[in-house]
Design a protein around this nucleic acid. Structure first.
Length: 470
RNA sequence: GGCGGAGUAGCCAAGUGGCAAGGCAGGGCUCUGCAAAAGCCCCAUUCGUCGGUUCGAUUCCGACCUCCGCCUCCA
């Protein structure tokens, strides 16, 4: 039994099978950030989810090619450019850099390919041209190019693959900009937007005049460029199902580059949103957290990652600071166990224990059931602790346990605690240990108090004292 | 209004037609110079509410309540 995964396209949990005839290589595209601001914790839930998918596929022996786009042309970006007076590149590179810093703090594996929309205008124009040739796109009086859903459907394509759609029911949005009136039908969407005065210097030449790409087209152009016209996995937040991903399918399948019978994307995976303190995260409610806010409050990236991996990806996750503190506690338990195992194992090397891996794999194969996966981990931790306490763990056994953990952590991506203990703290700890040996407990306790004042806690173990951040 | 997701202990969160995993927090004990950590034990007669099907439902069906998402550029 291999990995089973929920596919939004079929609305079912189904076995994962790569398109690659050898069954090894997997193409995976994840909608990346729009770089107009610092990423918030909700954004990162989705990226941690995508990272988990990639890591688990690799754990399962697949060779994954992971592509994540950077959206660096878009309404909010253009507004930012206008307001700051920076160039497009200056403006977006600042936030893109911040994004990759945040991604590293959360231990996200770097995608193999990170294309920027603004650097793929040529590919985008070519794709729009092809859609024009196929008769699925039209130039409107305002100079923009739109995708005609009606013509696409008349040609035998299906619009509405990811959700039940009643196009007549589509309620017009509150904002109706002038170009909306230029479309043939309300549901048609822009492939190319004619340059407007607000765009300032953000525009490119095209066969239809100056302008910029529509929102969805970059993902079609770049995913097909780097993964081919038909690939395995496409992921994103659930809010992207419509219209973004639906339109992406229309553009990509409208280009008709896929081998016959093959869809643009085989498996669509969508992550549920995050709630904060039980409510939708919003700036006006004051429950809006960027990742940087949390790091600045002293939470470690791995603690945040742990919390984001504590709920199933298709369920809403309620993010709270209390939850983050609970994550810290759970991680500490795990870290302590691993530290003890390391002390016992010494230099010993061994093959991984099979047991925790089997249980973990069985859990994760079932649509990435992380909760059952964690249960496997913590039951295993209890077993190891018991063996350690009873002194019945040989260095080889400890090494085998650690090897198993390394396999598990190739998926969890927690790594080791990042904090280095400063030399003066270690010196105090040594001093206290000397006092203890001399049975000068008053002095030992005084030093412990001093360490606590400095924010460090000391624990005496059979292998000597351990110092931990309080 | 349409479509979709969710409601399980103080908090987070699995799961199953037959008497409810795991984590955090809390309580007791053991160990420890004292602590901490760890170990052992305890901590939901109950799974949003009300009906129905069934020998038996948290799990299936129906209604209702609440929350969340999408319905044109929000992960």
């Amino acid at each position: 039994m291999g990995l089973q995964i929920f596919n939004t396209r079929t609305r079912r949990v189904e076995p994962f099978k790569p398109l690659d005839p050898s069954g090894r290589r997997v193409g995976m595209y994840c909608c990346g950030p729009t770089v107009y601001d610092y990423g918030h914790i909700g954004n990162f839930r989705t990226f941690v989810f995508a990272d988990l998918v990639r890591r688990y596929l690799e754990f399962r022996g697949y060779e994954v090619r992971h592509v994540m786009n950077i959206t660096d042309v878009e309404d909010k970006i253009i507004r930012g450019v206008r307001e700051t007076g920076l160039s497009l590149q200056e403006y977006t590179s600042r936030y893109e850099k911040a994004f990759w810093e945040d991604a590293a703090a959360l231990h996200l594996l770097t995608p193999h390919c990170r294309p920027r929309a603004a650097e793929h205008i040529g590919e985008i124009i070519k794709l729009v041209q092809r859609l024009m040739e196929r008769g699925f796109a039209y130039k409107a009086p305002d100079g923009s190019v739109y995708f005609s859903i009606e013509r696409y459907c008349r040609a035998g394509h299906r619009y509405g693959q990811l959700l039940n759609l009643d196009l007549d029911q589509l309620r017009p949005g509150a904002r109706v900009s002038s170009d909306e009136y230029a479309k043939d039908a309300a549901a048609d969407f822009a492939l190319w937007k004619a340059r407007s005065p607000e765009d300032g210097e953000v525009y490119w030449e095209s066969p239809w005049g100056e302008g910029r790409p529509g929102w969805h087209i970059e993902c079609s152009a770049m995913s097909m460029k780097y993964l081919g016209p038909s690939f395995d996995l496409h992921l994103g937040g659930e809010d992207l199902i419509f219209p973004h991903h639906e339109d992406e399918i229309a553009q990509s399948e409208g280009a008709e580059l896929q081998p016959s019978g093959r869809p643009f994307v085989n498996y669509w995976l969508h992550g549920a949103h995050l709630l904060v303190e039980g409510r939708k995260m919003s700036k006006s409610l004051g429950n809006f957290f960027t990742l940087r806010d949390l790091l600045a409050q002293g939470f470690a990236g791995r603690e945040i990652r742990f919390l984001l991996l504590s709920a199933h990806y298709r369920d809403p996750l309620n993010f709270t600071l209390q939850g983050l503190r609970a994550a810290r506690g759970a991680l500490e338990r795990l870290d302590d166990c691993l530290q003890s195992l390391r002390e016992i194992a010494g230099d010993a090397e061994a093959e991984p224990q099979p047991e925790p891996l089997d249980r973990f794999t069985a859990a994760m194969d079932e649509n990435l059931n992380v909760s059952a996966g964690w249960a496997a981990v913590f039951d295993w931790v209890r077993e190891q602790n018991r063996a350690i306490r009873e002194g019945r763990l040989t260095p080889n056994q400890a090494a085998a346990a650690l090897a198993a953990w390394r396999r598990l952590d190739s998926v969890w991506g927690l790594g080791e605690p990042e904090e280095k203990v400063p030399e003066e703290i270690l010196a105090l700890a040594r001093e206290r240990q000397e006092a203890r040996k001399a049975r000068d407990f008053q002095r030992a306790d005084a030093i412990r108090e001093e360490l606590l004042r400095r924010g460090w806690r000391v624990e005496d173990t059979p292998k000597g004292p351990r110092v931990k951040r309080n």
